[in-house]
Write a protein that binds this DNA or RNA. Structure first.
Length: 465
DNA sequence: GCATGATCATGC
DNA sequence: GCATGATCATGC
């Protein structure tokens, strides 16, 4: 009892209000942890740590222990207990074009599946811990030491001050996550389930599992704001805009974002591509012409759709033969062998899993019977989709394991083939056969990537007609 | 007609 | 010049 009071008094003395916390944070703007002194002096060896994966969290720890001098303990309450404020630090990066984006998602606390099954939104650990965040973002620069990183953002991120549209989406995201937890389906959670707030994997080792009610133990996951949403916030705070991005809702009062998007296409379902390309004045021979057409149908004239970027939704066009079989498998970026062999399946950094856990938006065109003879294609349908977690952790993981073993052995003959029938396979993916990457044994081979099998895509596209 | 290898086109 | 999304080409 006495101990508890002492801790509270200490906190109260220093950081009773969010305003004090913010003002102390503001001192770091355009400064570094070396040039701006905090409450306690940071030991030199900590400042000299090189920025890298191993030191993740060290900046956060330095801000807590030295810059603010707080000792957050309890996971379920905010770091500044009195003020009810959570402290977060996160990297931003500068793109070639000069604009900033978030380097990664913002992790908002591991989900306790047992507790969260019984709470409302306002009672959830997400809300209680993160309704008010002291956000300190620093510019990520490779090979710099931690003490030399420059802070660019110092803001109070107050949930209730988010726009009504964003709050509606985040609350509905939370409801979707919560429903799976209540239904004993925590093991089926996926990033792609939701738009801005996501349940991201969070595990030190691949064997780590957490219990849930009414279901098998599930991977540890944390609430998080998606990278796209963090990029959106970053640009708002820094006052920079991406002039290639355009809003699709334009302030419309949208009840259900996915339905809203799908409905925009409904007047054009069944129309021939020829007619559509004329109607929307898409006059190009580029391979991306159907993607451009999809944007135009949505009323977007620029390259990117703001809400899709915010939600990390990947738009893909699919061409079907008249039989319903996709004309092509679906490719992903090529594999970097040297990084790939170091990955662990459940790593937050796992590239393939990250790509497949995204939410996809498919714009599907289909050939008439005489398609090969002419251009008699039509818009068949559009759909949002994300790969079921059971497929990702099942067939995909099998192929990924197989591929990792093969690359580690530098054995090209053992790369998984599409005839194995396990959702994904490996194929070349470079500019040409001269475009190579280096295997562990030093030999070169054409760049490869994972492809989603045509047969699997066929079933996906057939579903929920 | 499919499986696999190879390459094109664009934008950054 | 390269990454990426998309598509072509060939042999079985």
């Amino acid at each position: 009892m006495i101990k508890k009071d002492q801790v509270l008094d200490k906190g109260k003395m220093k950081w009773a209000t969010s305003q004090e916390i913010l003002e102390h944070g503001n001192k770091l703007l355009n400064k570094t942890l070396r040039t701006q002194k905090g409450i306690k002096t940071i030991p030199e060896d900590l400042l000299l740590q090189i920025v890298g994966v191993k030191q993740r969290g060290s900046i956060g720890t330095m801000l807590e222990e030295y810059y603010y001098d707080i000792q957050p303990g309890n996971e379920a309450v905010p770091d500044f207990k009195e003020a009810g404020v959570e402290l977060k630090s996160t990297p931003v990066k500068k793109l070639q074009s000069g604009i900033f984006s978030a380097k990664e998602r913002l992790v908002l606390g591991v989900i306790n599946y047992l507790n969260e099954a019984n709470v409302t939104f306002e009672e959830s650990s997400f809300y209680i811990k993160n309704k008010s965040i002291m956000l300190l973002s620093y510019l990520h620069e490779k090979d710099k030491v931690v003490g030399d990183l420059k802070f660019k953002i110092s803001k109070l991120l107050v949930y209730e001050n988010f726009s009504e549209e964003d709050k509606k989406i985040i609350r509905s995201d939370w409801e979707k996550i919560n429903k799976k937890i209540r239904d004993g389906k925590a093991h089926e959670l996926s990033e792609g389930d939701t738009l801005y707030l996501a349940a991201c994997t969070k595990s030190a080792t691949s064997k780590n599992r957490r219990p849930q009610n009414n279901g098998p133990d599930a991977k540890p996951r944390a609430y998080s704001y998606k990278p796209g949403y963090m990029t959106y916030l970053t640009r708002q705070f820094l006052g920079t805009v991406d002039d290639k991005t355009e809003s699709v809702t334009r302030g419309d009062n949208v009840k259900d974002f996915e339905k809203y998007i799908v409905n925009k296409f409904s007047p054009y379902i069944g129309m021939s591509t020829k007619k559509l390309l004329e109607k929307f004045k898409v006059d190009t021979v580029a391979k991306s012409k159907y993607a451009i057409l999809a944007n135009r149908i949505l009323g977007v004239n620029k390259q990117k759709i703001e809400e899709f970027e915010k939600a990390n939704i990947k738009m893909k066009t699919i061409q079907l033969k008249h039989t319903g079989m996709p004309k092509e498998a679906m490719s992903f970026p090529s594999i970097k062998f040297n990084k790939f062999i170091e990955e662990d399946w459940d790593d937050e950094e796992n590239v393939l899993r990250g790509q497949l856990e995204q939410k996809f938006f498919f714009v599907i065109f289909r050939c008439n019977k005489d398609c090969e003879a002419g251009d008699s294609k039509f818009l068949e349908k559009v759909m949002f989709w994300n790969m079921p977690a059971t497929d990702i952790d099942g067939g995909v993981k099998n192929q990924w394991d197989k591929m990792q073993n093969a690359v580690r052995l530098s054995n090209v003959d053992k790369f998984p083939k599409s005839s194995d029938g396990k959702i994904v396979h490996i194929r070349p993916h470079g500019r040409n056969s001269e475009d190579v990457d280096i295997l562990p044994n030093g030999e070169s081979t054409t760049k490869r990537c994972f492809w989603i099998n045509q047969n699997y895509l066929k079933e996906v596209v057939k579903e929920n007609k």
